[in-house]
Amino acid sequence: MNKFGFTISKGRQIDYESNDRRIADYIFEKEPSFRLCIECGGCSATCTTSNFTVFSLRELNILIKRGENDQVRQNLKKCMLCGKCTLVCPRGVNTRNIVVLAKKAFQKSDEYAI
């Protein structure tokens, strides 16, 4: 069938209904400041890890919130927990705890066993 040379790639869109947001819910419950992010990117800008490699805490956080967990699981481990992000955040988001909780959540869930 002629698709006129393009299709809508399934991987491109966030399928909100079928995505699993349990990791996000877990973090929301344990660390309510997770909700306060305004996506300013201050954390990613100052990040020690992103000085060396592709790593954006802001992006990982929003992906968790949308349930796009696959991209997060491996990447999150690059964090060194140095805490600069927490110091910079204008909204007082407890970014370090979010990383620790997310790592724990991924570890807990069998589905996402490392």
């Binding site: 996506e39 300013c40 990117g41 990613s44 800008a45 100052t46 990040c47 992103s50 954006s56 802001r58």
Partner: peptide, 10 residues
């Protein structure tokens, strides 16, 4: 140092 949040890159 800044993140270009719309490009998603530092």
């Amino acid at each position: 140092k800044v993140e270009d949040t719309l490009a998603g890159r530092p």
